[in-house]
Simulated scan of single mutants.
Amino acid sequence: MLKFIINRIYIAIPTLFLISFFIFGLQKLMPGDPALMLAGEDRSPEAINYIRELYHLNEPFIVQYLYWLGDVLQGDFGTSIRSDESVMDLLLLKLPVTIELSILSMLFAILISIPMSIIAAVKKNSGWDFSSSIFALIGQSIPNFWLGFMMILLVSVHWGILPASGYVSPFESLSQNIQTMIMPAFVLGTGLAATIFRHSRGAMLEVLAADFIRTARAKGVKRKTIYLKHALRNALIPVVTMITIQFGELLGGAVLTEQVFTIPGLGKLIVDSVYNRDFPVVQGIVMFSALMFIFSNIIADSAYYLLDPKLRHREVS
C-alpha cells in the first residue's frame, strides 16, 4: 500500500511543477504593470523602482518564476495587492467555509443518488428507472447559477423561508448557519447527485449481470442480501473513486454557487480577486485548487486499491 501511494506521489510531483509554471506564466501574460498597481495612484519613480527590485520584476521571466516557486515551496504564496494580507492567511480563512459547503453538498448528493441508483438498477426499464434517468439528465443540464437564482426567487422572495444570501459561522449560530447553507448545498449537490446516479446505476447494472450474482440467486440467497451486500459492495468501487475526485474539485472552490449566494469561500474569493486584479491571490487559489485536485486523485487511487482486491493481487504478482 505504501509503495502504491509513493508511486502516485512521484507521478504527481512533475505535474505540480508543470501546473505552477503555467499558472505563473499566464499571470505574466495579463495586461497591466504590477509595479504600477502596487505603487498606487500617488506613485513616484522611486517607489516603482523599489517595488520592481523587491518583487524581482526586473529579472528575466525564468528567474522570477524560480523566486516565486521557492517561496511557494516554503508555504509563502505572496501578499494580496488589495488588502496587504498574506495569501496563505486568506486561504486558511476562506477554506473552512468551502469545506463546509463541499461536505454538505456531497452528503446531499450521496443520500439522494445512491438509493435512487440502486432502485433504478434493480427495476431496470421500469417507470422508476425512466423517471430517475430523466431527473438525472435534468440535474446535469441545469446550470448552477440559474438554479440558484430560481431557488432564491422561490424560497426566499416568494415563500420567505430561508435567507437569500449571506453566511453565518456555525460557532456563532448553528441554526442560522444551517439556514444559510441549505440552498447553496442543494444547488451544488444537484449536479453532483445526477453524476453519481448515472455512474452508480451503470455500475450496479454491470454487477447485477455478473455470474456470481446469478449463482447467488440460484442458491436462494435473499434479494436484499444480493443487492446490498454483494452487488452494491462491488458497484461502489468505481463510484467511491469518482466521489473522491469530485470532492477534490469542490474544495477548489464552487465559484458560481458561492458568488450567487454570497458565500465567503474560495470560489467567491477568486472571483473578487480577478475583478480587483489581485494576481497573487489568484495564483495562490489556482495553485491550491490544483494541489487539492491532485491530492484527491491520490486518495481516489488509494481507495480503489483498498476496495479492489484484484489490483492488490496484480501488484503482488
Rank of each mutant, 00 (worst) to 15 (best):
M1T: 08
K3T: 15
F4D: 00
R8G: 01
P14S: 05
F21P: 08
I23W: 09
F24I: 00
M30N: 12
N49D: 08
Y50D: 14
E59Q: 14
P60C: 00
F61N: 10
Q64C: 03
L66A: 01
L69H: 07
L69I: 10
V72K: 13
L73A: 10
G75L: 00
G78N: 11
T79S: 01
I81H: 12
I81S: 09
R82E: 07
D89P: 15
L93Y: 14
V97M: 10
I99R: 05
I99Q: 02
S102L: 06
I103Q: 01
F108G: 07
I118T: 05
I119R: 09
A120T: 02
A121Q: 02
D129K: 06
F135M: 01
I138P: 06
M151K: 10
M151P: 06
I152G: 11
V155K: 05
V157A: 13
G166Q: 01
G166N: 06
V168Y: 09
E172V: 12
I178K: 12
Q179I: 04
T180L: 08
T190M: 09
A193Q: 06
A194V: 00
M204P: 05
L205M: 08
L205P: 02
A216V: 03
R217C: 12
R223K: 15
I226H: 02
I226M: 06
L228F: 03
N234Y: 01
I237E: 02
T244Y: 05
F247L: 03
V255R: 08
E258H: 05
G265F: 00
G265H: 02
V286P: 04
L291D: 14
I294N: 02
I294C: 01
I298T: 03
A300E: 05
A303Y: 15
A303H: 06
Y304R: 04
Y305Q: 00
L306G: 00
L307V: 06
L307G: 00
P309N: 07
P309V: 02
R312L: 02
